[in-house]
């Protein structure tokens, strides 16, 4: 076997090892990608912020949103009617909306009404609560149709 062939084989073998390692890392990242995906989508929506809420908030009722809908994550499709009280979201069984989500904290976030508005507040979660790309650090106003990212799940208020 010629010197050149062997050198190519030798380096090719190292490339193969690294391809394995990097593919395995890519597989691991898929766990996280599920979390990253909705945020990426939000980014593309930034150009036309009006486009995203439009389909969901059909002619915003005078009394504001009436339900909380899980739009992404393991519980997609779950809805929760809104009453006048706040909603606690997290993994703990005592939460109002119990998420089965590795990336959410036991008591992750709270959505509560004040006046005519709904607000979202992060409760010191490990992975944070996001409105679009913004991490929620203080109680923030939450309009209908705006996705709140909690772990891998996204919830939004709908009319």
């Amino acid at each position: 076997m010629s010197e050149l062939t062997f050198t190519l084989l030798r380096l090719g073998y190292l490339v193969l090892l690294w391809v394995f390692v990097l593919s395995a890392v890519a597989v691991l990242r898929r766990d996280l990608a599920l979390r990253g995906a909705p945020r990426a989508r939000k980014k593309s929506d930034d150009g036309a912020p009006a486009a995203a809420p439009a389909p969901s908030s059909r002619g915003a009722a005078p009394s504001g949103p009436t339900r909380l809908v899980v739009t992404q994550g393991p519980l997609t499709g779950t809805t929760l009617p809104l009453s006048g009280s706040s909603i606690l979201i997290g993994r703990a069984p005592s939460c109002t909306l119990v998420l089965d989500d590795d990336y959410s904290s036991s008591r992750h976030a709270r959505i509560f009404p004040q006046g005519d508005q709904w607000y979202v507040e992060d409760l010191g979660s490990t992975n944070g609560t996001y409105l679009g790309d913004q991490r929620v650090s203080a109680p923030t106003r939450l309009g209908p149709g705006v996705g709140v990212q909690i772990g891998r799940s996204v919830v939004e208020l709908q009319g």
């Binding site: 009617p81 009280s85 109002t96 509560f112």
Partner: peptide, 15 residues
Amino acid sequence: VSHEREPVLVGAGAG
């Protein structure tokens, strides 16, 4: 989703 239990009450306007 529990309806019977009332979660944490917060803030001023939450009744």
